[in-house]
Nucleic acid binder design. Structure first.
Lengths: 350, 350
DNA sequence: GCGTTTTTTGACAAGGTTGTCAATATTGGA
DNA sequence: TCCAATATTGACAACCTTGTCAAAAAACGC
């Protein structure tokens, strides 16, 4: 079989000897600390390179204050939303010399404060991550925010949040995006516009709905309460909403769905009933998920730069760590993009 | 802001004092080592519980031979395949007290042996993972296998593999599943059956095709080379295949697609041209991905227990680690499931 | 030129665990 | 009952870094 594991990988001591300096100086150079002559700095770098030296994270994190580990806490590691953000986060971590680890927490709703604290303490103590990336819906959870703050762990939240809590936040402007969607529909001449909400425990559901409401009002249009359907961001909810509209005497001519999956469900329901999209009803989604271009016609939607959200979250976190002065409240808004495709057209009727 | 980071989390020393034993005994108990009286064992467990003790992974991995870290190496962290496996792996890791970290390697095809070795050495030395889970297409890569074996890192491969290399492997029986698919179609009366291949660099493409071929031959049916279309596991490839079949004078009455995404593309192409599935053409996919129940009609397909593949890979890896005797070559085959849905029916014509 | 401040460098301890090995307690055999 | 073998326990070193602090070197002020 293979050779025994450890091998003879170079240690800091070896680098120090080769460079003719003390171990501590090597440490300083490799951590980009000041107080080292440029000449020595170069020597050390060369020695490290020559020996193909890779520092031991275990030793680093045991002794030092950094673990070079960032923990991504999420709810469902199977969803496109989570996975795309995670993808960006992994890339950023690799570039910055960090390691991304994943933690799953389920059923948080039913957890008492003590359980939440326990869950995070376990995550945290096992391999004291330098920071935590908190994805929706946890990004907006007060209890988690409190526990993590209490533990002094830097956090970046991803997604819309309404916590008073200061801290770092990376998001897109869901509100503005929703307004653009409505404007697109009203520009086409729609007046009877429906809306499919997302999960009640996700802040984005509320923000998108509020953008929708405001834009409708700004356009001088009434919102028919019948046309605002509930949903949980899943295909079936969109399908159900479709069934409802099909049974309605005077359905909306356009529907804005809080996400693509539901929009696809809506379109499926309509198509099965023999209705044409966009001729009989215009549909707009949100996310630009895979399904937006797997359905026919392609879905008009709003693209969220999910992978950028993930990488930005990580790089902000890391940036905040090296700034000795704790980076204060901080909100980064990435650009979304309205993607005009085939599911929207002027209304046939009014 | 928050309290300072470290806090006063319990250490092994504290547990030892509370239990009235030596530190080493605590270590033994917590690692399930032999040579401890049951009475002491219980005492230590209670003390650890009372103090809410969580061991420091850094110290453990610095001193000991285990890092309690498992590294998942994959290519594209955005795909459903990868993400579902990863999901299972995270769950298993959490249960077993391990941490899952993710590494992305791109463009491996173009990497020289030295680069591959370097990439893995970096991954490996940073936080010496106890094992590596290698996903397709890397699971079948000779160079990676060689490098990891040389480094003495235990590996579990997930997916079909044709390496001579011994080692652990977790997969489903793609071959058998393909045969079942063909049998289903022939049972329905189909004789002219097409096939859409997957990426050439994925072993599963070849295995599924070979199952297809064998089953066709067993059924006494000819394979029309025209009906075997290329693909890369993506929606577009299926769509393209559909276009081809639409232009064919005498197209197949049924098509077996190497995965669901391509099957969906195929159905989309047919629907756009006004053909009905399954009436005009039966379609079978592979994977039981989300899209299988997002399209209409629902896709007949083969379910891969992806998340189970991930959790099994991790638990086998961990099992292999604790068996002092290196677990030898080892192949675990999980059950797949043929999922009969709406895209298959007897042929209208022969 | 000499004392003082500032910059650069290194010696040493410490971090929390596990491996080694010796010491002690227990068991078994005669 | 006593000695040998075995099972249990603990003392101590070691793992590889970084933080602390003091020493050495350089720069500065007069």
């Amino acid at each position: 079989m293979a050779k025994t594991r450890s091998e003879n990988s170079a240690k800091m001591k070896d680098v120090a000897e080769l460079a003719g300096v003390s171990i501590k100086t090597v440490s300083r150079v490799l951590n980009n600390e000041p107080h080292v002559q440029d000449k020595l700095r170069r020597k050390v770098r060369e020695a490290a390179e020559a020996l193909d030296y890779v520092p031991s994270q275990s030793a680093r994190s045991l002794r030092g204050s950094r673990s070079y580990d960032i923990n991504l806490v999420c709810h469902n590691a199977g969803s496109v939303y989570v996975n795309s953000i995670q993808f960006g986060a992994v890339i950023a971590c690799q570039e910055l010399g960090y390691q991304l680890s994943i933690s799953l927490i389920e059923n948080l709703d039913q957890m008492a404060m003590a359980d939440i604290r326990h869950a995070f303490e376990t995550i945290t103590r096992r391999r004291r991550p330098d920071g935590v990336v908190l994805l929706a819906p946890y990004a907006n959870d007060e209890k988690i925010a409190f526990v993590l703050d209490e533990m002094g762990i830097p956090v970046v939240r991803v997604g819309p949040v309404d916590l008073q809590n200061q801290g770092m936040l990376v998001e897109i402007d869901d509100y503005k995006a929703s307004i653009e969607v409505v404007r697109h529909l009203t520009d086409l001449g729609h007046k009877r516009i429906g809306f499919i909400r997302g999960s009640e425990n996700q802040r984005s559901s509320h923000v998108r709905f509020s953008g929708f409401s405001v834009a409708m009002e700004a356009a001088g249009l009434e919102i028919d309460p019948d046309f605002v359907r509930p949903g949980a961001f899943d295909f079936q909810a969109g399908y159900d909403a479709g069934q409802f509209f099909l049974g309605h005497a005077n359905p909306p001519t356009a529907v804005f769905s809080s996400n693509d999956d539901m929009a696809a469900g809506l379109v499926a329901a309509l198509s099965e009933a023999g209705l044409k999209v966009p001729e009989d009803m215009s549909v707009v989604g949100f996310d630009d998920a895979d399904i937006a271009t797997r359905m026919r016609p392609f879905l008009t939607t709003v693209r969220q730069p999910l992978s950028d959200l993930g990488s930005t979250a990580v790089s902000e976190l890391v940036k905040g760590l090296s700034d000795s002065k704790k980076a204060g409240p901080h909100r980064i808004v990435l650009d979304h993009e309205f993607v005009l495709r085939g599911t929207t057209a002027p209304p046939k009727r009014i």
